[in-house]
Design a protein around this nucleic acid. Structure first.
Lengths: 326, 326
DNA sequence: CAAAGATGTTTACAAATGTCAATTTTTATT
DNA sequence: AATAAAAATTGACATTTGTAAACATCTTTG
């Protein structure tokens, strides 16, 4: 019908057409109608071509992460805590308490930050939490060469808390990395079983792999009755309360830490199958993704313990961290 | 940057805000109205913020160049001439003879191709021509580390033909490269003066720099009365006609080449201040940007002479190149 | 050959977007 | 404190865009 105008026959030809249309629209700035006239097709077709071009990744829209660290708030936090970078998500949730939207935006900022920080060849450990999941969900498909993603924490079954497994696999998928999972529950019922599992060859091998990580992606949990440890059924409310009394300020990798970031030997830390805090701290780049002002104490504890080099937080938490007295 | 710390931090805050708004719009997919409501500003302001985010390079819209080489036409050309890659711009100019539009689209394709081909640390030589200028004009701001851009051909004064100087500077600006210009006319009136100029230390130094290029961006000129050599006042119509009679098929770097791509020792080749064809051919990556079916013979000559590894052409020229008998 | 499917077209409509000019608010400067 | 300059807002408007439904054309396939 429009053979001379630019009908393509093969798949590759189609991709070329998509690229050219995309260039006309996003590059040259023509309107869809103008493009339709040139191609001698209907405008609806152009709409579809452009959608396909975006869907197939021929057109990429990328928001630079560098600028997320340039606010004064970010700089002040960096200076105060000696962090490498602080990415702040603006939530603007003045009236609304749409926590889901706040999380999504933080996830997007964290995903942008992640792509800024990750380097080809990195071995990455991925932990837990709704903020980490938000990062995963916002991560665009962007190949990074030679990356290995490992699960830091055993698997678990819970409706409310996203598993480390899920997060690790999702990140690996998006950046085209190899993924190593931990074939064990995150927490078991007896100390003996936990010890036996850690000695199990396949698990021990994976644990060994976690000793030389380049980068870690994690969050930090609160110590209170709504901590995710309890939510995930991994601790009783009583245990949590006891931990709080004992001076625990945060939860990372299913382990309690005090205000100085030192591990508190409290249950259920002896029944978990996760990497050790020593290994966690050893990573060169540790990206902590945290949401909510009520996490300020926990975040401070994590920073004090050396569990963060890069921070992704919402504006509220950022302000809370700065206001702190000490 | 020329102000106190206070102003600087405000600028940074603004960049952070732009990033966040951009993420909401391009990432989360909110409408401008929704974003305005969240920020509690007017929608007009959001429009402006988004425009600024694009202008300041916080949002980048990138069209993948890979797909431009996947059409069967591209593959056939690659196979026939043994080229590394062939990028084809679709012009769709069925009825219209808007040569400017065709050029712009080719420029955009070539710019995309350029960014695909250039590698950090490359030393790039840049030549002449309206197609090369079209590439420059379409080149987005995209930093490439450690690149040096050099002018392949002396400067010239002409309204009709864009100078090598202009092109080199523009490319260097866009990719943040260092730029070396040739402080000499492209053509002078006597053979002796040309020789003397080439021996001039500053010019000789620059010429030396052109002996170890990683990449070249050039076009190829026609041998006919409307060749750009004549248009730029660098040759008389008589000379051009004589060259054509003598078997010259194309003009590259102000020098005539025959069908086999060998240099024809014809005037004004002995009065030009440009890199030698030997140096040109020595570059690892040579990107030839050519527009128009009437350049088919010249393009074939250039390819035969080893003056192309990567080709950027419009669909018409691509078809013409394939149809050729030999 | 006919039915089924895919693809593109036309038409129509609602929503989103870009832009303008007039006005108010904020900020900087004297 | 007054005022000039800059920035944001408002409301109105035309354009652009996304989407849907009904129809036409071509290809595949049994």
């Amino acid at each position: 019908m429009n053979r001379s105008g630019g009908t393509f026959s093969k798949d590759g030809d189609r991709a070329t057409q998509l690229s050219n249309v995309a260039l006309l629209y996003y590059g040259e700035g023509l309107t869809q109608s103008e493009i339709a006239k040139r191609l001698q097709v209907s405008r609806v077709t152009v709409v579809n071509l452009l959608r396909d071009a975006r869907d197939e990744g021929i057109v990429e829209i990328h928001v630079s992460g560098r600028h997320l660290t340039e606010s004064s708030l970010s700089r002040d936090l960096r200076d105060k805590f000696g962090l490498e970078d602080v990415y702040i998500s603006d939530t603007f949730n003045s009236a609304e308490t749409d926590r889901a939207a706040v999380l999504r935006q933080l996830g997007r900022v964290a995903a942008t930050a992640f792509l800024n920080v990750v380097e080809p060849g990195d071995k990455i450990g991925v932990a837990w939490g709704e903020t980490v999941l938000a990062l995963c969900n916002a991560l665009p498909r962007a190949r990074v060469e030679g990356v290995e993603v490992s699960q830091l924490i055993g698997s678990m079954i819970s409706d409310r808390v996203p598993a480390s497994e899920t997060c690790a696999i999702q990140i690996a998928n998006q950046i085209g990395a190899r993924c190593f999972t931990l074939h064990a529950p995150a927490i078991v019922s007896t100390v003996d079983l936990a010890r036996a599992l850690r000695l199990e060859p396949t698990i021990a091998a994976q644990m060994n792999r976690l000793r030389a990580l380049d980068m870690v992606v994690s969050s930090i949990g609160n110590v209170s009755k709504d901590t995710h440890l309890v939510a995930a059924g991994m601790a009783t409310p009583g245990e949590a309360k006891a931990a709080e009394k004992a001076g625990a300020k945060g939860v990372i990798c299913c382990r309690y830490i005090d205000a100085q970031g030192q591990e508190c030997a409290l249950p259920p830390s002896d029944r978990v199958v996760t990497t050790s805090l020593k290994n966690l701290r050893a990573a060169r780049k540790i990206m902590l993704v945290v949401c909510g002002e009520d996490r300020a104490d926990a975040t401070r504890a994590a920073i004090a313990g050396g569990f963060a080099t890069h921070l992704c937080v919402d504006r509220g938490l950022a302000a809370a961290l700065l206001q702190s007295n000490s």
